[in-house]
């Protein structure tokens, strides 16, 4: 792992710092464009995940209330996981379109190619951070307060950022070479929603399957978010460990693949 690290890994993080001003501009412009497009603007960032949480809560407690899923209060349980899921899904589907959105930019941009990937990730991350009040609303409705382990919440944000960055590099580079990947991503994304512990807790899965389920890097990320509210989740710590290991692997793979395919990406389609 140490051998792979230097070139791709270090550059990937340094680029963000070196080009922070341009990145800030790009991200703010993208957000502004999104928020001025609709009448309700920023409110949609709250309403969309809130609506989804309400629908899922209704279906899984009122309609299919027979089997106990997740942890109580279920509405908060859903809200805490749906927001990062939203980030994940927006980031991944955005990554597939990164180099198709404006191929002309690649002809003349002197910025590192990775900037376009980072932009997509940062925009989806900014939207996520802006949607966090949804959790506060859910806490208010369910009258629940988090414990001291909530300090792991920001750690979750950082881990998810690197997961998204790695995945986005992988997908953006892949989609630039194989256009069909954008379609495949959509299907895989749908499956990932049900395979990730968004609606349920990893503890709900049969014990034998838990290790396999933990290969999903979202398990660890969602665990870090939830542990502050449900300290019992700490029992699944080994699984979070596996999952975070996969996150590191995804990041390294993304860096290496992007580096390898960069010249091909620049040629466009």
């Amino acid at each position: 792992m140490r051998i792979l690290q230097p070139l791709a890994y270090r550059n990937g993080v340094r680029i963000i710092w070196e080009h922070r001003q341009v990145l800030r501009m790009l991200v703010l412009r993208d957000l502004q464009k999104q928020y001025t497009k609709f009448r309700l603007g920023y409110l949609w960032t709250l309403l969309e995940p809130l609506g989804m949480a309400v629908v899922l809560w209704f279906v899984f407690t009122e309609l299919l209330g027979g089997r106990k899923l997740g942890l109580q209060p279920y509405f908060l349980f859903l809200a805490v996981a749906i927001l990062p899921w939203w980030w994940f899904s927006k980031g991944v589907s955005g990554a597939a379109k990164t180099f198709r959105r404006n191929p002309a930019l690649l002809q003349m941009s002197l910025l590192p190619t990775k900037i376009w990937v980072i932009r997509v990730v940062l925009v989806s991350m900014a939207e996520y951070l802006l949607s966090l009040p949804v959790i506060l609303i859910a806490m208010l409705i369910t009258r629940t307060l988090p414990g001291p382990l909530i300090v792991l919440f920001p750690v979750g944000v950082i881990v998810q950022f690197f997961l998204m960055y790695g995945l986005a590099m992988l997908i953006a580079a892949g989609a630039a070479v194989i256009p069909d990947l954008a379609r495949i991503v959509r299907i895989v994304l749908r499956a990932t929603f049900y395979l990730s512990p968004v609606l349920y807790s990893i503890a709900n899965i049969p014990a034998g399957a838990q290790v396999i389920a933990a290969i999903n890097p979202l398990v660890g990320v969602l665990g870090l978010y939830r542990i502050g509210f449900w300290p019992t989740e700490i029992e699944s710590l080994p699984h979070y460990g596996i999952s975070l290991g996969v996150t590191v692997a995804v990041f390294i793979a993304g860096s290496v693949v992007f580096h390898r395919l960069e010249s091909r990406i620049l040629k466009g389609n």
């Binding site: 001003q21 790009l26 002309a104 930019l105 003349m108 941009s109 002197l110 910025l111």
Partner: peptide, 28 residues
């Protein structure tokens, strides 16, 4: 300095000022 297809880098959804910052940023 690449002066190649610069006009296509502009974004119609941005103001003139924003576009100047955008293209300037792209050109380093």
């Amino acid at each position: 300095l690449p002066m190649i297809g610069l006009g296509r880098a502009f974004d119609r959804g941005f103001t003139v000022r924003q576009n100047i910052y955008l293209l300037g940023g792209l050109l380093g």
